[in-house]
Amino acid sequence: MLHATIKLLTQFNLTVKQTNTRFSTPTNGIEDCCSQSALKCFQSQLNTITSNNKELQHKLQKNLLKSSIVKGVDRCTVEEKARVQCASCNSYNKTDSQVFLKNLLLLLQKAYSRLN
C-alpha cells in the first residue's frame, strides 16, 4: 500500500497547478515519533491543493488515511510517543505546493525504506 501511495503522489504531483497558496509543511527532519502527526498535517491540507485531477487527489487523500499507511510511517511505541512533544500543524513553516508535496514524498519514502 505504501509503494502504491508513493506512485499516486508522484502522479498527482504532475497534475498540480502552481498557485500563491502556502501550506504548513512538516520538514523531513521531524522526529520519528512525530511522523503520524506530520502525516495528519499533510493529509488535512491535501484537498486544498489546486489540481487538474480531483479523482487522483481524492484517492491519494483516502490512501493517506488507511491504517497500513498510518502505521507504516510510525515505528514508535506508546511510551516513546508519550515522551515527545510533536509540533502542531500550524507551527510548521508555510511553503508552496511543490515543497509541500516533496516533503510528503520524503516521509512516505522513509516509511517505505524502513519496511524493506
Rank of each mutant, 00 (worst) to 15 (best):
L2P: 03
L2H: 03
H3C: 13
H3G: 10
T5V: 06
K7E: 13
L8G: 00
T15L: 11
V16S: 04
Q18E: 15
N20S: 15
N20A: 15
N20D: 15
F23K: 07
T25W: 06
P26R: 03
T27H: 08
T27V: 06
I30Y: 05
I30A: 07
E31Q: 15
D32M: 07
D32S: 10
D32Y: 01
C34H: 11
S35W: 04
S35Y: 09
S37I: 09
S37K: 13
S37R: 15
L39P: 01
K40P: 04
Q43E: 14
Q45V: 04
L46I: 14
L46G: 09
N47I: 11
T48W: 00
T50G: 03
N52Q: 11
N53Y: 08
N53M: 05
L56Q: 05
L56P: 00
K62D: 13
N63K: 07
N63I: 03
L65W: 06
L65T: 14
S67K: 12
V70H: 02
K71D: 13
D74H: 02
C76D: 06
T77A: 05
V78N: 08
E79H: 09
K81D: 04
R83S: 10
Q85E: 11
C86W: 11
C89D: 05
N90S: 14
S91W: 06
S91K: 04
T95C: 02
V99K: 01
V99D: 01
L101T: 00
L104E: 01
L105W: 05
L105D: 09
L106Q: 05
L107Y: 04
L107N: 00
L108C: 10
L108Y: 01
K110G: 03
K110F: 07
K110W: 04
A111S: 12
Y112N: 10
Y112V: 02
R114Q: 14
R114Y: 09
L115E: 11
